[in-house]
Write a protein that binds this DNA or RNA. Structure first.
Lengths: 339, 339
DNA sequence: ATCGTTTCCGGAATCGTTACCGGAAATAAT
DNA sequence: ATTATTTCCGGTAACGATTCCGGAAACGAT
């Protein structure tokens, strides 16, 4: 009994019209008698007609779909994706999300697969492995719209929406300094990532401003990973130069650090301070609750989406935009030594 | 300078062949001279030819894409989706994920939109609002393959993969009983959801087995929501019949409950026990760490994916399968009163 | 009455691919 | 040598929509 979904042809036949007339009625174009249009729309409604998107996209060479490529779907990024989603929805676009799982290979594959006429363009946050940008240059040659966000791609001509990561590193560090901490360690992320370096730079800037000598031994580069952070912290705590505060550039790392601190039996915030980055909701639930740098994730995503749409609709060559949004410090128990 | 991507036609023209020959070479079909096939493949490689999926899908009336509709992307469900992803990848399928955000309306819309020739079938976990299943009956009439998982749809003929939720409720409750708790409250989810009721049933069964009288006042139905759970727990704790243990059917609710318990100044697990459901990773990080029922999420997803593929490839009418996987209790500090 | 303009519609090409049919050439069988 | 069978390839019609072109009918103006 399986009946195929009705097509434009079925409607045309039943009303003794041509497919072109039906097509005109179904879209919002002139050159159509209001009455016949009404008839067509009625029958379409009755048959529950739904246009075949494949056919339309094939013909129009346009899919009204944005390909979003992200390294993972953690709290921050999934919030950003929601922002993209909202911007897309408002413009009648659909979003397809692909995780690269921090793998360069999958990033390349995903880009290629989506490019096969599935999407009109891309909104991208690169994987931590990604160093080359060859696979994106192909897109540029074909003039396929592209916006990068969060983790941007160096040396590529595309609009970008990012957090002011340097500012984030700065306010976190300065806050610790103001709370009286002096030997502040940083758990920085992988050196390959721009966001790591920017946050690290902000850290250094804050130290300099307050005349605290920068000590390279208090810097640990490790993966965005709770376990790595745990071990790194253990090592820091048992070294001669035991820090009296730790700034981690992600919350996962902050949690790892906290576990190590608890293990060591140190009191927080009295003996050691801690500030994370991202402000994931669970931070408020720990004892002590953990301070963190909050970023406007949803807004970043939404802005990326809006810029994409804008550039897509602008047939004329639109300008490259670089949006930088400001972070905000969220102070909790883990770093509140002074009342 | 934007050059359109090469098509099968371009290849044909350059090699003075017909498109049908090229098409044959590009697929794995006989009726082709090995040498010409080699030539074609070489040129395709050189031009970096990628088949246009839209055209292929339009022609074949098949997209090799599975539409996955979920109420949200929390820890458990996103793990399940990863399982689906893996099964799909192995079979050469792509997955498109859509969140209904627990809204019936969006579920219907998403289903309809995806159905417009974007997907070959569905793997679904319904929203908590969903009561009617009309929008799925349409799928059945068109014989569109469909597998339900996690939260199943009542009264519909489709294969399903779920957790043994009754067993989950049972082992959690029995564990609390074995730890000496007697007045065990349950924060059950929305009454509309099958999983709520099953877990509740398991709870009752455990009480009965151990000859503990069931007390309806210790049952609270509320949303899967940390705040609701917080207030519900506050109320429970200040009532005459203050419970000495709480079983929540989700971890979010467990966290809410724990906050209320801490607020009240009760000692855990000495004065009150707590067991959650889902075993989210953060549970281990709280003090005290929270016990929870773990489900094999990835396996559930992967099995759903496999069954889908199987049914899709089986043109003959395949059997309805009902897979029920077993949960596992993960005991932590929040419920360990006896050593 | 003639010509020009609108208004409205149909025909046909097109998007890139696959599927079916048939036919020429080469090979095998009688 | 004739027939039968492979082997390999081309032509063409789909799939379902959009788009361009042109033309018939209706209307208006002179």
């Amino acid at each position: 009994m399986q009946s195929k979904p009705p097509t434009i042809k079925d409607i045309a036949k039943k009303l003794h019209l041509s497919v072109s007339t039906v097509s005109r009625a179904l879209r919002n174009v002139p050159d159509i008698n209001p009455e016949t249009k009404r008839n067509i729309l009625e029958l379409a409604e009755e048959l529950n007609y739904q246009p075949n998107k494949l056919a339309r996209s094939l013909r129009q060479n346009q899919t009204n779909t944005i390909g979003v490529i992200v390294p993972n779907l953690d709290y921050v990024i999934s919030t950003m994706v929601k922002g993209i989603d909202e911007a897309a929805l408002e413009a009648g676009f659909t979003v397809i999300v692909c995780q690269s799982n921090e793998s360069f290979g999958r990033e390349v594959v995903n880009t290629r697969r989506m490019l096969n006429s599935l999407v009109d363009g891309f909104i991208i946050s690169i994987s931590s492995e990604t160093k080359s940008n060859e696979h994106f240059k192909v897109l540029q040659e074909r003039e396929i719209p592209m916006v990068v966000f969060d983790r941007v791609i160096p040396d590529i001509l595309a609009s970008s929406v990012i957090l002011d990561n340097e500012e984030g590193g700065f306010i976190a560090t300065e806050h610790l300094i103001e709370q009286g901490y002096r030997k502040i360690a940083i758990l920085a992320g992988p050196k390959t990532l721009g966001i790591s370096n920017s946050r690290f730079k902000g850290y250094q800037k804050a130290l300099k401003k307050h005349n605290i000598k920068f000590d390279p031994e208090l810097v640990v580069h490790c993966d965005f990973n709770q376990d790595f952070a745990f071990f790194a912290t253990e090592e820091l705590l048992s070294s001669k130069k035991r820090p009296d505060a730790i700034f981690t550039i992600s919350d996962r790392m902050a949690i790892g650090a906290m576990l190590a601190i608890k293990n060591k039996g140190l009191k927080m915030p009295e003996e050691i301070g801690l500030v994370g980055f991202n402000n994931e909701p669970s931070l408020a639930l720990f004892t002590p609750s953990i301070s963190s740098v909050e970023q406007p994730s949803f807004e970043i995503g939404k802005m990326a989406g809006k810029i994409f749409i804008e550039q897509f609709l602008n047939t004329s060559f639109s300008d490259i935009r670089e949006e930088v949004l400001k972070p905000k410090l969220c102070i909790r128990e883990s770093s509140m030594r002074k009342i």
